[in-house]
Simulated scan of single mutants.
Amino acid sequence: MGSRQNWQIVELELDGPGPGEVMLRMEIAGLCHSDEHLRYSEDARFPIIGGHEGAGVVETVGEGVTDVVPGDHVLCSFIPVCGRCRWCSTGRSYLCDDSPSSTGAMTDGTFRFHRDGLAFGAMDSLGTFSRHTVVSARNCVPFDRTVSFEVAALLSCCVPTGWGAAVRVAEVRPGDVVVVYGSGAVGCNVIQGARLAGASLIEVVDPVVGKHELARAFGATATHADSDGARESIYEATGGLGADSVIVAAGVVTDDVVTAAFETIRKGGTVVLVGAHDVASELSVRLPGTLLTVECKKVVGTLYGNCNPLSDIPMLLGMYQRGELELDALLSARYSLDEIGQGYADMHAGKNLRGVIQHGERS
């Protein structure tokens, strides 16, 4: 697809896996807002195949691949783990140097999808919207066959991103007061993370009132249609102190949203930015530096909730299997590939929490 165009379905040629790579038959792909941002990107190389959330089956493996074998069920983490770079070796694998570039190329700078002599990139070097794709083995996390492809796909991105934003980044503690902007799939996992960490109040801001009931089901103690309502509620509940943290998981983050979040936190509080703007170069953070200093506030960004896919995904999956983490309720709509446009239209209209593309049989 090209910048500011609608999604298109085309037939492409796919190279086999090179050294360290795996060919996957995708079964499920998640419709994450990050892929929709591609339509407005000024940084991405086009044409590019969407999809960075998904799960499927290993069909063939390239030279040197030993961690997975044909037939394995795997999910695609858009964060690879090389285990050797500065970031991986210091416990910050979410910044791994093997992380994909905006070109959508593989780590060696080449492409696996082609048509009429033109190379196609893949979102986060994955391209899970394609029925078959070639990815680095470092992006593959095997999972037990008793787990559905649908649930596994959620663990590719939205679950660790949201849960980690609350637990790893905001470091929510028992008794904390937390505000969450956005109650989509990522936001609901922020809510779950804050609840499991022991937050006493979890108030949610989402202009789509239809999402409020589900936010409460995931653990929100109150919901609001706008930031003013949340700020007034938090100030009243805390005697004017404000929230310990505001986690911004809105689909499109603007300077108005960040400013409102900043005004809602107390001294020493933290604003965590999870979402993004459609245009990466847009200045979406405009704050009074003096207040940032004298009130010791923090504004931090996070990628993948600062999680490690190789350790945190199995942990989160275990929590789900023990009934501690709700994932099934996130799956609100299923689409065929040719319905992708409708899937994203429904997302923008607030009609689905996490829609998924069903490439194969329903799992």
Rank of each mutant, 00 (worst) to 15 (best):
A349K: 12
V204P: 06
V169G: 02
G187P: 03
E282Y: 15
G242Q: 06
L201V: 11
S41K: 01
S99I: 14
D244T: 10
V22M: 13
A280P: 00
V65L: 11
E59P: 03
V272R: 10
L14H: 02
T66R: 15
R195H: 08
V209P: 00
M123E: 09
A105R: 07
K297M: 10
G275Q: 06
E203Y: 00
G305A: 10
E11M: 08
G54E: 05
L273N: 05
D108M: 07
P19V: 00
V74M: 04
A119Y: 01
W163V: 15
R216A: 04
L291Y: 03
S125A: 15
L201A: 12
V180F: 05
V57P: 04
D328Q: 06
D312V: 07
C88T: 11
I247P: 05
G56Y: 09
W87H: 15
R86W: 09
R4P: 00
G104A: 09
C76P: 03
G341F: 02
D144F: 00
L126Q: 06
A29H: 02
M123P: 00
V186Y: 04
F113W: 06
A55C: 05
G121R: 07
E59D: 08
G198K: 02
K267A: 14
V285E: 08
V271W: 01
R195M: 11
E295L: 14
N308Y: 02
E326T: 11
R354D: 01
H52A: 04
L126C: 08
R266E: 11
L287H: 05
P174Q: 06
L214W: 03
G198S: 07
N6S: 14
G121W: 03
R231L: 14
G350Y: 07
H277A: 15
G251R: 12
R216P: 01
R173F: 01
S284Y: 14
A349V: 04
R92D: 13
N306K: 07
C307D: 09
H37Q: 02
T146M: 00
V172G: 06
L325M: 08
V285N: 09
D312T: 15
